[in-house]
Amino acid sequence: MVTLTINGLKVRVEEGMTILEAARFVGFPIPTLCHNDGLSPYGACRLCVVEIGQEPKSKLVSSCTYPVEEGLTVRTASQRVLKARGMIIELLLASCPQSKTIQDLASAHGVHQQRFKQEYEDCILCGLCVRTCSEQMMAHAIGFRGRGENRSIGTPFDISSDVCRLCGGCMYICPACQLRCTYNQPQHAICNACANLRPPCIEKEGYNNLMCYMEPCVACEIK
């Protein structure tokens, strides 16, 4: 067992856990995007950053990859963390506003502006699909290609893969393309419409009113 302090609370957790697991275990929420309990940690979206150590030498690390250490001090929602998280969400919104997952993150974290050139990309390269394909389906049909701006996910040479079993796992797990969000004004990246609804849309007369084409509606799943 390892003892560490999370947000001032002394907790004892099993060795080998990540900070994310430990924090969630004791009930501190940390948003994640590229993390999934069934898949290996990847550490790419950086949404799960937490501040570790004592100031002024404290630093931000991705909690989904960082193993707990004896005596570690963790803050999951310090000013520094919130600022970084907000900026990441803003960058996400700027690239992929049609993802419902991202819109929900924006409303949950009070991100009300998007100051960059608006793009409409379909993929945030979180790699969940690649890991699902290789780790859960043992297929290794898709992978990453290129680097920097040109990085993309697909099969080698874009030729349909003979190891792909068309299981659809990649689409199921995708936070960007599966939960599509259409909002009334495409020029505004932030809609917040459904997430801000009280009560959730299920109790509304019909989801048609909500400019949402998801069927069944997923708004009710929003925390």
């Binding site: 960058l91 700027a94 960059f116 680097r147 920097g148 701006e149």
Partner: peptide, 21 residues
């Protein structure tokens, strides 16, 4: 922005956005 590996989202997009600005 060309040499970022592209794995880490803020690096890939952040360098691109800084270049745009």
């Amino acid at each position: 922005k060309d040499e970022s590996c592209g794995k880490c989202f803020p690096c890939r997009k952040g360098t691109q956005r800084m270049f745009e600005l």
